[in-house]
Design a protein around this nucleic acid. Structure first.
Lengths: 303, 303
DNA sequence: ACCTTAATTTGTCTAGGACAAAACATGATC
DNA sequence: GATCATGTTTTGTCCTAGACAAATTAAGGT
């Protein structure tokens, strides 16, 4: 008669909050307050899981956990649609045509979406398509996601179709022995691949040789792959969802196991406000990624 | 002078062994035995991380943790190339040309691999290419993986390139309003997508309309997506790595939340020896997948 | 050979304590 | 008024050590 309850492991999967954090919040703030099953193990009612997901979204958006947990449900709901302060009108032209694309997804019109995207690709050319369509559209979907007004399966469909488009576009570019050799991947627990594909498209356009290894490579494997493929550059991508606090240590570690001759480039929305690091090149935007290739070439010529 | 050390979180990421398990093994078996940093926190030397990864592989292969951890390094190495008993000569024709493809991967010749695969696709046509090249090659890579004679990054490269090929091939097929409408996805904790892509290619060849949602959809979302897209069929894929005992409960659960009018088809190497279930169609091979489409059409015509 | 029951192995959960790093607030200085 | 250095609070991760259930293997009885 009651709604289903979730184990702590299930809640961790569904919310992205670690077991440690769930227990700590309970201890400190008194929420969540799961009931216990026959074995004395936490059993979270669905409503609490929902609330946790909302709180997680708001934390990712910049709010403080303590405040959020103390707030009432309606206060949280009021916070939800908050936009980042940097979002001034001239900062983002709020392009109506991108909203149209998003609308196609929300109408579950896969064919229409693909067609519209293909048209844009043909009209804009690949570089502008990546920078002016895919990148902002991905951001738009991400914002809709944190605001909670897009379904999970809609987001999945968008991601899948966009991945296909990008890969297809990339495959039309010439291959062969080109320089620099860029190995593209992401670290474990970072499954988002669209950022990598955008970078790959731009790098390939600039004449680089791209070695796409997919996502979630253990650090030691990245180092081995870099050696095996004689890579000049290892390029990583971090999405906005990746816990930022872990990134510096990760990069330090990778930098240490990586041959000194291999450059380490890091991009994605997860690294925009990261401190500078020795031996790591932070790419805060796609423009910078392109510029980095040019710079690399100049340095090689100079040596 | 000393090799790098890894925090427990880093080891969890790189090995897939949870922090709880790492601490438990240390307590019970005395391995791993990390040193401690200034804060008294575990610091795992690289060599122990390597050993843990080897042990993890062997566990996934069916060995027992207790035995493995007690064994010496050389004993572990000896265990690695164990082959499944079913691998009789006549069971697998061991096609030399597939080994050639695998060799290209192991030589890290991405361009050569892609070219060779493209040739095969052109020569065999898509259906035979999927069934006679991609499927056995994927199996070969899987076997090399459990046998430990393929590097992680080599497997990643193979997967990534194969995914591209399949998606590219699929995109050449006509779209539009076709029947049946098949929604393809996998459950949470099942990230493998190649099986889904093979199925999609074959379904699309048979004239079905495919809606690819990528992997790892929560069950409730699958049901919502099926409704939103007016799907006739939901097709799931389970890889051999997915814990088989969880599958029946999962399918039961999904069957319950899914509209009764939607068929549920399940394939992949994870379901070959699964008991029959009410309301779930098990597809033990790609041939059966094709046959299932034909059968569905016949049933529709009959009604 | 097959089913049932006991012993073992193994992973996950629990509890509360400790502490460092991040975020925030405060004050001092240019 | 802005920037920088300092203290304070918040917050997440790690620690130890115990308990127990689920999965697996072993043993016994048809």
């Amino acid at each position: 008669m009651e709604t289903t309850h979730f184990s702590i492991a299930a809640v961790e999967r569904d919310t992205g909050l670690s077991k440690d954090v769930l227990r700590m919040w309970e201890r400190r703030y008194g929420f969540p307050e799961p009931s216990r099953d026959a074995n004395g193990e936490r059993a979270y009612p669905g409503a609490q899981v929902e609330r946790l997901r909302l709180i997680k979204r708001l934390i990712d958006q910049g709010h403080r956990p303590g405040k959020l947990i103390a707030s009432a449900d309606d206060e949280l709901a009021a916070l939800a649609p908050r936009r980042p302060a940097s979002r001034l009108p001239e900062d983002n032209p709020a392009p109506a045509d991108l909203d149209e694309l998003l609308l196609l997804i929300k109408q579950h019109d896969a064919a229409g979406f693909q067609q519209a995207m293909q048209q844009r690709l043909a009209r804009q050319g690949m570089q502008r398509f990546v920078q002016d369509t895919i990148a902002p559209l991905t951001r738009l979907v991400g914002e809709a996601w944190v605001a909670g007004n897009i379904e999970v399966f809609e987001e999945h469909l968008f991601t899948e179709l966009t991945k296909r488009l990008l890969r297809q576009a990339i495959s039309t570019l010439p291959g062969g022995q080109r320089t620099p050799r860029v190995l593209l991947t992401s670290v474990p627990d970072e499954p988002h691949v669209i950022g990598l594909l955008m970078a790959e498209a731009l790098f390939a356009l600039e004449g680089a040789e791209c070695i796409p290894l997919g996502t979630q490579m253990p650090l030691l494997e990245i180092a081995r792959a870099a050696s095996a493929h004689h890579a000049d550059i290892v390029a990583l991508s971090f999405s906005g969802a990746f816990p930022q606090r872990q990134i510096p240590a990760l990069l330090q570690q990778l930098r240490m196991v990586l041959p000194a001759t291999v450059s380490l480039w890091v991009g994605g929305s997860g690294v925009v406000r990261l401190p500078k690091m020795e031996g790591v090149q932070l790419l805060a935007s796609l423009d910078e990624a392109i510029a980095a290739i040019t710079r690399w070439r100049a340095e090689q010529a100079g040596i």
